[in-house]
Design a protein around this nucleic acid. Structure first.
Lengths: 335, 335
DNA sequence: GGGCTTCCTGCAAACGTTTGTGAATTCTCC
DNA sequence: GGAGAATTCACAAACGTTTGCAGGAAGCCC
């Protein structure tokens, strides 16, 4: 049975309201009283009950983070950035894994809303219907999307310059002389990956002798990359360069290539996206597009907190982070 | 302004208590009434306020997860297992990164307690003082430790058979004929890693011609492993086999070895611990000790939930998961 | 010393639920 | 048809805070 504010009030001979004011450092309470109350509180080991406080203030000091899978290193990095930023601001983070399942995502959203979180940051799996958007916006909860570059919607967004990243990958492979190129990407309608593909395809077709890449869709994880790699070898053995929309998929594909006796980059050049830590240490080290994962999480929380006041509905903010090519050893000029 | 239970009551012409009972499926409300209330609630889009409910029931349906760093793949996996188990039971998970900093850990604990979480699972950084243990236990919050094998303390524990894993690694290296062996491990007083070291050292000394390994302490991440790898080369170039207490450290060390022109496993055999996904795909594939990370997170939450009733203080539970050697290609017999 | 601030503190109403208690209604059965 | 049991519901008190309001005690100035 934890000690409550009433215990502190009784013990120190003042009213609970005075205790509350004293402990929260508000105006209008005598220094002596404040000190005495603080001493009593300390002696009793009083810890304010935040759910009670949340009930009256309407703020829970809690944020929701909905990602597809925290085991994905990209999201782990985003989560860490978000958690640090939240922690600095005295907020907590509730972790949710949606598995790209719209139902699961919606259940999580409901749960978070029922807990009256001050804000939610999510990589939305599917395009939210107008009705869903309205509903969420009406709940008065701030939302930041992590994978929509420039939505027409009402929510703020934070993400990397995915389209630019796709362009960088294309220009790099073209510069190396490749003409038979494939793109391994994630599920359709996945905001970030769609943008990467768009930038990639557009850049390939914006040159004197346009290239039309082989497109292969799959799951955004190691096994998905592996399967896509096998499919590529079976159906398009002529390809000499591959752009995978994430490092994890790139690793899976490389595994498939090596198993089939191909050499990287001898027979096949591979470029990834994300620049996760292990990209530097696999063999060969993976050439990839860097995006600032930690900073994305941080920025998302900062925007969230700025909007969480919900006095007046802020206009949505959109923040795009620059990406850059990290040249390692998984690509080489075409012979 | 969200719709409250009062709105539903007024709109459906019954008392709030009836609405509450109807929606929570309790006895003592007529089927017709229940249905009518449910319909009104649906029409109004009523969502119960869980913080209000938590205030009166005393249960928040929230768990705290304190890990050192979610970017560590081991913890990501544990977190995912924990989150899945929590989700199944209708609970949420608050994520905290302690960075192995005792102060930060304690601040997080306080924050979680103030939020009245139903339980906390943590990889405690430091040995909790008896007083801290008492205090936490007195708060009536269930706690499961993720890195103490058999504590004398009052809390439940879940972990892998770290000592056994250390022994497996030692026996394997001995079997390959190595006699000059090093162990790269994490910070001192880190429960899991200490146990791995203990099992490793003991097994090395339990043979006819005992081996005393070179011990190097450092940070449990890629850079830490890299630095330890360099230190090892500088101070003990005679070593032919290395046991790293985590795969991540092993990767760092391998990087240092390769930079120095050593070949793996030609010049130096390396064995890790964890068997994270990427252990299979680096080059050479890493021989390591597998531990069931996801299942550890799952089991921890299940124990937590079982104890969270806190009617009577359960006796602490201790669960140890088996580990096994995964033989890949980073070790070879000594010439 | 009286009226005026200014400062401090107590009172009580909220916040949105759950739940024990008792009243009112219906049902059952003779 | 009526007594008693069973069912269904309303009332109100909690849960632990915050906060607007008002009352009381000082202090200040003339």
């Amino acid at each position: 049975m934890p000690v409550t504010i009433k215990d502190v009030a009784r013990e120190s001979g003042v009213n609970v309201s005075t205790v509350s004011r004293a402990l929260n450092g508000e105006y209008g309470v005598h220094a002596d009283t404040r000190e005495m109350v603080a001493a009593v509180a300390r002696r009793l080991g009083y810890r304010p009950n935040r759910v009670a406080r949340g009930l009256v203030t309407g703020r829970s000091h809690t944020l929701g983070l909905v990602v597809s899978d925290i085991r994905n290193h990209f999201f782990a990095e985003v989560a860490r950035g978000a958690e640090d930023a939240a922690c600095r601001a005295g907020h907590d983070l509730i972790l949710c894994n949606s598995d790209l399942d719209p139902d699961k995502q919606m259940r999580y959203m409901q749960s978070l809303l029922e807990k009256r979180v001050d804000g939610i940051l999510m990589n939305s799996v599917s395009v939210l219907s107008r009705a869903q958007q309205e509903q969420l916006a009406a709940m008065g909860v701030a939302i930041v999307l992590l994978n929509r570059t420039a939505p027409r919607g009402v929510f703020s967004t934070v993400c990397a310059d995915n389209r630019g990243g796709g362009r960088l990958a294309a220009e790099y492979l073209l510069k190396l002389g490749h003409r038979r190129i494939a793109h391994l990407t994630g599920p359709r309608h996945h905001g970030n990956m769609t943008d990467r593909a768009r930038g990639f395809v557009r850049a390939l077709s914006a040159v004197p002798q346009p290239v039309e890449p082989v497109m292969i869709y799959g799951r955004n994880d190691f096994t998905g990359g592996y399967e896509m790699g096998r499919e590529l070898l079976a159906r398009h053995p002529e390809v000499t360069a591959v752009f995978a929309a994430s490092d994890t998929m790139a690793f899976g594909a490389i595994r498939a290539f090596i198993e089939a006796g191909r050499r990287i980059p001898g027979d096949l050049s591979v470029i990834g996206f994300d620049d996760i830590e292990l990209a530097a240490i696999v063999n060969p080290p993976l050439t990839t597009i860097y995006q600032p994962k930690y900073e994305i999480g941080e920025a998302a929380v900062e925007i969230l907190l700025r909007h969480a006041d919900r006095k007046k509905p802020h206009a949505p903010e959109h923040r795009v982070f620059d990406v850059r090519l990290v040249e390692r050893q998984s690509c080489k000029p075409r012979d």
